[in-house]
Design a protein around this nucleic acid. Structure first.
Lengths: 209, 209
DNA sequence: TTGTCAAGAAGGAACGTTCGTTTTAGGTTT
DNA sequence: AAACCTAAAACGAACGTTCCTTCTTGACAA
């Protein structure tokens, strides 16, 4: 009967997760030591190990949070009516990621894309994480294929276009730009739209106007 | 004067690099131990340490090889005349990566994309690697922007389109599909073309035909 | 309101292990 | 005989984790 409030426990857990995420975004999961995390969150080992069974559990918690965030944003995008064109949808998706997870590194760079690529590498190591990611990806792909069907219904593109392939391509653009932001920094969500508009404006020679 | 032939030395070095690449693609740089590498290449510690000063040097060699390979392929694509449309250029770029580095994991999955995402995470840790990557990226972006200018010259797209933004977008597609192949496997270079063709066929409502 | 106290929360030294690397001695190839 | 390589042991450093101690909290009795 000397417990501290649930809010306190939740806040501590969040504090640990946030500090760990910062460390992991900086150095990756396996090049950051527990002592790095302990120093970052300014807690003792005893405290952290009360909230997480170990490093693996901490990593799993971060991976899950990242995957849930990304999946949620993709699905939110798929629910928009009417579906925005890709040059609007894709930068908006990136912008929503920044809104949802705006935290930055010490150098001011956006943390979340770095975390994303770290999660990608980690999922290739863990069958359970890989399964979670695959499941989410399947759903997102189906959702974004429905967007493409919406384009067709609106007469914006031919009915015989491959909706699933196009969904994959749009997701690839999001992933690719996330990687570029992680690697090169900057806030170029806007130029993403310009690039996509340009890409959509390409007309193979000897085809209509 | 009982040296072994230079070919032998080169072959040993390559054997070590290939084995290390396999380990790194499996588990990432920092979750694979030197002993993992030693076992994979079936050499003693003394032998490996004769060719590489240590783990860091081994990692740096792998990173450099991956970056050089990718950069070479991007630049080869930029030299094609006449420049193929994106729906041809991009899957061809991925196909050339597979030709250049066809090695597979134990499960038959293509190794190189996994190595690519590992390299991405590693470059965020090392300023020198980050500088190398940034420099290569700048050049590739400029090269691919020249492709876009070629499209304009051929009357395939409006002159006022943002060539640099479009170059970024095309590179993002390559990167995104590399990530998808690394994460989900499969050989869907072909559907990449379908997806891009569909994307390029989108016409915003209330705009031309 | 105040004092007491058990239990929860946090601290921090220390544990055993594993890491990357070096060293040793001996064997094999050229 | 010189270079190459093996096998094994050993190194200090760093790792993840545990364990015991200390501090803090909140219920309850006075």
């Amino acid at each position: 009967m000397a417990r501290v409030s649930q809010e306190h426990l939740d806040a501590r857990r969040r504090q640990i997760l946030d500090g760990a995420a910062l460390c992991f975004a900086r150095n990756g999961f396996h090049a950051t030591s527990m002592q790095d995390v302990l120093k970052e969150v300014d807690l003792s080992a005893g405290a952290v190990y009360r909230y997480f069974g170990g490093k693996e559990e901490l990593i799993a918690a971060i991976v899950t949070e990242v995957l849930d965030t990304v999946r949620g944003i993709y699905e939110q995008a798929a629910r928009e009516t009417p579906p925005p064109t890709p040059d609007v949808l894709i930068p908006r998706t990136l912008a929503r990621m920044r809104e949802a997870r705006p935290a930055t590194l010490d150098n001011g760079e956006w943390m979340f894309p770095r975390l994303m690529i770290q999660v990608w590498t980690e999922t290739t190591r863990s069958p359970e994480m890989a399964a979670t990611l695959s499941e989410g990806y399947q759903n997102v792909r189906a959702g974004w294929a429905r967007i493409v069907e919406g384009y067709k219904d609106a007469g914006m593109m031919p009915r015989d276009a491959d909706a699933d392939a196009m969904a994959r391509a749009m997701i690839a653009v999001v992933q690719g730009f996330a990687a570029q932001i992680a690697l090169f920094g900057g806030t170029f969500e806007e130029s993403v739209g310009d690039g996509l508009r340009a890409l959509m404006a390409v007309r193979p020679p000897g085809q209509d106007a």
